[in-house]
Structure formats: C-alpha cells, structure tokens
C-alpha cells in the first residue's frame, strides 16, 4: 500500500482507540458497578472501595437469581437439544438432495424470520393459557424454537455444503445408511460449523427477552426478565442490576469468544457465499 504520512497514521490510531473505548466502556462500566456499594454507584470517579456483596444479595429473596440462572440454562439447553439435531437432519437433506419445492421450502424457513416476535407470541400466549403452560420452562422452550431452528438450518446447510459429496458416496458404497452418514461422517467433518451454529443459537436463546417477559410471572422467570425486577419503588437498584448483568454476560462472552474467528459467517454465511 501507499506510504502514509505520520499525521494520517496518528489520526488512524486515535480513531481506532476511540472505537476500542466506545466498545469496551459500557461493558466495563457495568462490570465496575457490580462491585460498588450503593453509595458509590452515583459517583463517577474510580475511587471507590470494591465489594462483592452485590453478588451475594442477588441470590437472596426477593431476587432469587439462582433460580433465574437455572431457568435460563434449562431453557437454553432444551431449546438447543431439540433444535440442533432437528436442524442437522434437515440441513443435510437441503444440502444433499434435490426435491420438489426445495428452493421454496428453504426460502420459507428464512422468510419466517420476517415474522416479528410479537406476532408469534400472541397465539402462543392464548394457547399456553388454555394448556396451563404459562410461566413454565416448557412453554419458553417451545417458543424459543421459533427463533433458533431456522437460523440453525441455514447455518448448518452452509457448513454441510462445504463437505465434499464424495465422503457420502464412499460411505454409501460401504453400505452405511443416511443416518449413519450424518452422525459418523458429516457431523464430525463439519464439527466446527456445528459448534458455531450451536453457540450462535445459545446466545440467541440465552438473551431472549420478549417471550419470557410475556410468558413468565414467577417460577419460570429468566435472567433477562429478572433484570426488570431491580426497578423497585425505592428506585433502580443499579448495583444489583449490574451484578445480575455479570451473570448474564459472562456465559455469552465465553461462548462468543470461543467461536470468534467463525462468528462473522454466522447470520449471513449462507447468503453471501
């Protein structure tokens, strides 16, 4: 590239530093707040005496964040346990076979993402009310499948397409069934992709808010909706909110960083290639 003037380079560095700060600052500020005493929350300096008491308080009544963590984890686990295997089978079929309406069906799967969550939740709310599934983790798993499954199919098809069809043919000659090919050939060969898709779907489910807001009241409240409860008559309990925020953020960050190098192909991979 061109030789660049020192001024341009310095300017570029300044801009990059600014962006780095913009990205990191809100996260850092929330994390810091989680370690503050209530009296330090309202001061902007860094000279406060750190405490871990907030992380204890949020586990006590009425916050019961332990239950919220369990709810969020159970919902995420069962959503993935259903969506990922189903998506693997279906993505394989889309990747390897020709059939009538193939394009139409694949497009339909993606097109469902145009349907806003408020539309999906209206009928489910009414149905769960009749079935007694309001405020249950089962109900949350069912509606979460709506947002996770199409993404999983889309992403997985892209990764399966990258596995040479000769692998299937070799296994077929050896007498393997399609199911055996999927579980013993395709999934192992496309494992990084399967992991990326799973992590992506985990983050979607873990961070899901509107379904849980509408469907849960007490027993099945997730971490995300639990955040709302820190807004009390005494005002906002920011330090407790921040402590809950740490519990929300850390698992998602760990998952995201683990697949960072593949993440950019997440939402758009299937469409660009």
């Amino acid at each position: 590239m061109t030789a660049r003037s020192p001024l341009a380079t310095a300017l570029q560095s300044a801009v990059l530093l600014l962006f780095f700060g913009i990205i990191v600052f809100p996260i850092a500020w929330m994390m810091l707040t989680a370690f503050k005493l209530p009296r330090d929350v309202y001061q902007l300096g860094l000279g406060f005496s750190p405490t871990v008491q907030n992380f204890g308080i949020v586990f006590e009544a009425p916050w019961n964040i332990g239950l919220r963590i369990v709810n969020s984890m159970v919902v995420a686990f069962f959503t993935l346990a259903i969506a990922i295997p189903a998506a693997i089978l279906s993505a394989y079929s889309f990747s390897r076979f020709e059939f009538t309406f193939k394009r139409g069906l694949f497009f339909l799967m993606l097109a469902t993402q145009f349907i806003p969550a408020v539309v999906i939740i209206l009928p489910f709310y009414l149905m769960f009310r009749d079935l007694g599934l309001l405020d249950t983790r089962t109900g949350l798993v069912i509606v979460n499948l709506a947002i996770v499954t199409p993404f999983a199919v889309w992403m997985l098809k892209g990764y399966f397409d990258a596995v040479p069809i000769e692998c299937d043919e070799a296994a077929l000659i050896d007498g393997a069934s399609r199911l055996a090919i999927i579980t013993r050939v395709i999934v192992p060969m496309a494992l990084p992709g399967v992991i990326v898709a799973s992590v992506f779907c985990f983050i979607l489910t873990w961070n899901e808010f509107i379904f849980a807001l509408i469907l849960t009241r007490d027993k099945a409240v997730t971490l995300q909706v639990g955040l709302v409860s820190f807004r009390t008559e005494r005002g906002d309990l920011w330090e407790l909110m921040a402590a809950a925020g740490v519990f929300i953020t850390v698992p998602a960050f760990i998952a995201a960083v683990a697949i960072q190098n593949h993440f950019d192909t997440g939402l758009t991979g299937g469409a660009i290639k």
Binding site: I203, N207, A256
Partner: peptide, 19 residues
C-alpha cells in the same frame, strides 16, 4: 472486542444505557 456487544443481551444493554 468486536464480538462482545453482539453477545450482550438487548435487555441488559437497555438497562445499562438507562443507567
């Protein structure tokens, strides 16, 4: 650090920015 904000939940982002 590019990946971090996207992994954060929109509900929490709303709360943090309100603060």
């Amino acid at each position: 650090v590019l990946i971090l904000p996207f992994a954060m939940s929109p509900a929490l982002i709303g709360v943090s920015f309100r603060f």
